[in-house]
Design a binder for these strands. Structure first.
Length: 511
RNA sequence: GCCUCGGUAGCUCAAUGGUAGAGCAGUUGACUCUUAAUCAAUUGGUUCUAGGUUCAAGUCCUAGCCGGGGUACCA
């Protein structure tokens, strides 16, 4: 055998090698497929048009009404000459009542030997069984697709975390609440777009492959364009292109799409994540504050029907309740820091700040500059405690090079960070539109590396950008907050996992 | 990257260093209103991988792979 020497780390029948007919469960299903074909039934060529989704039979029940339904077989109870089965489609499950006398001997025998997870279509009439369950009295059925591998356990569902993420389709088919979560995520994304369109924002698409990845400080992914013979970077933010559009006269503009950051993976970080950025000309950060609050409340109300969101532990106990009812709290960054680290925090000398931060249990290994010490205090001790929606305003200017200096405190910028559920969900600024000051601050950030400066963006600013408010909303984190999920992997359909096919190796692209 | 916990039948899980088990699923049979159907019988294992200790390893040791949690990196 050519593949005899290969070893497969995961022995699961779900992932196993395509040729492993040696597994008896697969072998049996293949042989059932063969016998169907020998009877002249090809389950992969059948045509069938359902009259309605399965759940319709419940909402629109009329005794004796003719229906045609299709779905995956999720239960099969053979009573001898009568068989009960449930088929399930996206709307839900519906019971089929199949009698030998109704469908004929050959078809009945065939039905009894269908497997769980096969797809079938059935025609018949609606009725209620003795126990009152709405069902279809089947007069004829067709096999629509044979499943050659067994589904996860019908009662326990699938709980192995790794299989759930690697083969999400199994998770979706066996865990209803998971499917609900992702359908709600879809609804959230839809409502965000609807909200912004109503407010006159135009949705655009800007380059994901960029020569200079800007708009944030993050390590990018590298990719290569063969014809140009040069490397590109996957974008780390949307900002600089959307601002070019403000220059071009698109006054209300947004993009919702993937950003890529080449950093560690955690419960809160996926290398590719979905970001909404929206810019409104002639607005400022206060404009965006109103937009942020209205947008999130609108989405919660439309998708969840409530502004109170309960997060639960594995046993169903409520860990915390988030109340989105406006108006959301506003707090100045410095006030929050003083509250936690002492009223005199900003009066003492930098060395004293380091000592005090260390005493508070902060690891300062990465904090070189003084403002980074304060930032560490905020991120470690304050942000995690901001469960209820809070707009943190007046951040130190060093943290945000793309925002305007505050009128009432020149050390700070006109910015807010909207924190909910202990995480930063949305930063927003009064955008910097002074091209000279912008150039200085970006140059300062780039350090000596001149090639990192997006000259084209700076030229655009010199053509004049209207004053504007801008906001970025992390859609994955927003979904975690709204859908009560504690891990970003549970709101991303296919979270990034380490590939199993070959060992990690140095990249030819690596610098 | 580091710390820590985990990987056993298709699924969910057991198993003092001493014959690798159960429930469900599957297979065969009975049953024309079941619904986690029931009843009878029955198949199914490279215990993640590779070494090591031992008379004997799922269990102990070492290394690796993959995953969860934490931490680091992340304006």
């Amino acid at each position: 055998m050519a593949h005899k020497g290969l070893r497969f780390v995961l022995q699961s029948v779900f992932i196993a090698h395509p040729m492993d007919e040696s597994n008896p469960l697969i072998e049996q299903r293949r042989s059932k497929l063969a016998s169907l074909r020998s009877e002249g039934v090809d389950p992969f060529r059948a045509k069938f048009t359902p009259s309605e989704p399965c759940a319709n039979s419940h909402s629109d029940f009329v005794e004796g009404r003719a229906v045609a339904v299709a779905g995956r077989l999720v239960s099969l109870r053979d009573m001898g000459k009568t068989t009960f089965a449930h088929v399930k489609d996206q709307s839900g499950a519906l019971q089929l009542f199949v009698r030998k006398d109704d469908v004929g001997e050959a078809a009945y025998a065939r039905f009894r030997h269908l497997d769980l997870a096969d797809f079938v279509g059935a025609r018949g009439t609606l009725f209620k069984t003795k126990t009152g369950e709405i069902s279809v009295r089947v007069s004829e059925y067709v096999v629509l697709a044979k499943a050659l591998r067994p589904p996860p356990a019908k009662w326990h569902g699938l709980s192995d975390t790794e299989t759930r993420y690697r083969q999400r389709y199994l998770d979706l088919m066996s865990n209803d609440e998971v499917r609900e979560t992702f359908l709600k995520r879809s609804a959230i994304v839809h409502e965000i777009r609807a909200f912004l369109h109503r407010r006159g924002f135009a949705e655009v698409e800007t380059p994901m492959m960029q020569a200079i990845p800007g708009g944030a400080a993050a390590r990018p992914f590298v990719t290569r364009h063969n014809t140009f013979g040069r490397d590109f970077f996957l974008r780390i933010a949307l900002e600089l292109y959307l601002k070019r559009l403000l220059v071009g006269g698109i006054d209300r503009v947004f993009e919702m799409g993937r950003n890529f950051r080449n950093e560690g993976i955690s419960r809160r970080h996926n290398p590719e994540f979905t970001m909404l950025e929206a810019y409104q000309a002639y607005g400022d950060y206060e404009t965006m504050m109103e937009l942020c609050q209205s947008l999130i409340c609108h989405v919660a109300q439309m998708v969840l029907g409530t502004l109170r969101i309960e997060h639960k532990d594995a046993d169903g106990g409520v860990i915390r309740t988030i109340d989105l009812t406006p108006e959301w709290r506003r707090a100045r960054y410095k006030d929050l820091v003083r509250e936690k680290a002492g009223d005199d925090w900003f009066k003492i000398v930098p060395q004293q700040r380091r000592e005090r931060a260390a005493k508070l249990g902060i690891d300062l290994a990465a904090a070189g500059e003084d403002f980074e010490v304060t930032s560490a205090v905020f991120e470690k001790l304050i942000e995690p405690t901001l469960i209820q929606p809070t707009f943190v305003t007046h951040l130190p200017k060093e943290l945000v090079p793309l925002a305007k200096i505050s009128g009432d405190d020149p050390d700070t910028v006109e910015v807010f960070e909207c924190c909910i559920n202990g995480q930063e969900i949305a930063p927003a600024y009064t955008e910097q539109n002074d091209p000279i000051e912008q150039r200085e601050r970006l140059q300062h950030q780039a350090g000596g590396e001149q090639q990192k400066l997006d000259e084209d963006f700076l030229v655009a600013l010199e053509h004049g950008m209207p004053p504007a408010g801008g906001i970025g909303i992390g859609i994955d984190r927003l979904c975690m907050m709204l859908l009560g999920q504690e891990s970003i992997r549970d709101v991303i359909l296919f979270p990034q996992l380490k590939p199993r096919d070959e060992p990690a190796s140095p990249s030819p692209l690596a610098p």
